[in-house]
Design a protein around this nucleic acid. Structure first.
Lengths: 213, 213
DNA sequence: GGCGGCGGAGAACACCTGTTTACTGAATGA
DNA sequence: TCATTCAGTAAACAGGTGTTCTCCGCCGCC
């Protein structure tokens, strides 16, 4: 075995990685229409075209696969958050950037988002914890990023944290609304975007006048 | 059979109602630690101490039972919403009333709230739809109630609707946070209450200065 | 070039699932 | 009083489930 973790993947571990990928993809696909706790191990392996026992070569159980999905769903999102918060802190521009970025991300990764929204309060504790931890990290990132704004002068650390959480929760709700729009449930995408923008405007306005009482 | 629906319950239909109640209670109890889509019909009947086939005398399937749980979970909540919004529209008082009422309601009906939060984005379409429809009704009730405030003058109907949804979403998030606090996960109840109050203050502030741009 | 490691196959395990069937027996209304 | 209605029973049905076992065959190292 090549015991160096950074070496070029041999054909063997490349193959292993490929089936692992297939299991994750199949799981994600099946999770589009059901929740993790009702997803069966055999169900996944059947789609991949692999023996049930092979599953254990990659994951301890379905919860383990779920946690892996959380990491790949939210890991790539840190960059997105930075992308939103960076650049000019002009209020209108940032709001526009926020909403359009979320819309694009949901369009590009609908299954991942659906999974996160569904399992955030779902029935698998390990997955719930993983999502919660990741969202907490986001909240803190947002809080420190927004603390750099002029309007954040005089804010307590605790209030900044509150603002970060509010922002993240709003992102998740907006993403969920975009998903529903894509499925034809609820208002259409343009309407969701409009509402999301106004919400952010309301929060921004509150932020500007926060210290006045 | 007494064909008048409002007559006093005969012993037969009283017994039927009692069994139905037991099924709902057992389901709710089991749903504390799992999601609806993974809850089995036999699982429920076993807890109640009744034959599996008896289930069909009361519900078509588990989704049907879920919808019934939604109605009893959120039906009684309309009064609560009115209780919050009625009374003096003094900002601080209303915020305090909002948070403490949510805290009390979660303390009194933790299982119902947990169920709603979990299944709001869960894997059973019928239940999702039922919850969504009920929350929409809340949003509209809140919107019309808040429209009576002085600060709502000059607001468009659409923005009032946006505010109502924001309020309802905040209620659900706060309730969920209180639940986690009760289970020892995340911050404690006092901290959750504090954060919730500040969030409402931020929104209130934004509301007051809305028309200024 | 042979050999150990290991991803995957295949079968068997014991158990659980939703649904249908024919039935029982108590409450009911005439 | 007597026939009827119907909530609940018991059993059987044809699946499906997670997990474990032994085995195979290929890749990668010495």
């Amino acid at each position: 075995m090549s015991h160096t973790s950074t070496s070029a993947p041999t054909s063997r571990e490349a193959q292993k990685a490929r089936t692992r990928r297939s299991l994750l993809d199949a799981g994600l696909r099946l999770l589009e229409h059901q929740s993790l706790s009702s997803l069966g191990l055999r169900e996944v392996t059947r789609v991949v075209g692999v023996a049930p026992a092979a599953f254990y070569r990659h994951f301890r159980d379905m919860g383990d696969l779920g946690v892996a999905l959380v990491e790949e769903s939210l890991g790539s999102l840190h960059g997105v958050v930075q992308e939103i918060l960076a650049g000019p802190d002009d209020e209108a521009a940032r709001i526009e950037r926020t909403v359009s970025t979320i819309a694009r991300y949901v369009r590009e990764h609908p299954t991942h988002i659906r999974f996160v929204v569904r399992e955030r309060h779902g029935g698998v504790p390990a997955v719930r914890a993983a999502i919660g931890a990741e969202l907490d990290r986001f909240a803190e990132e947002v809080a420190t990023a927004l603390a750099a704004d002029e309007v954040s002068e005089g804010w307590s650390e605790r209030d900044m944290r509150m603002l970060g959480e509010l922002f993240v929760d709003h992102m998740v709700m907006t993403a969920s609304a975009f998903l529903d729009a894509a499925l034809g449930e609820g208002p259409d995408e343009a309407s969701v975007a409009r509402t999301a923008r106004r919400r952010l405007q309301l929060i921004s306005t509150g932020r500007r006048h926060w210290l006045e009482g």
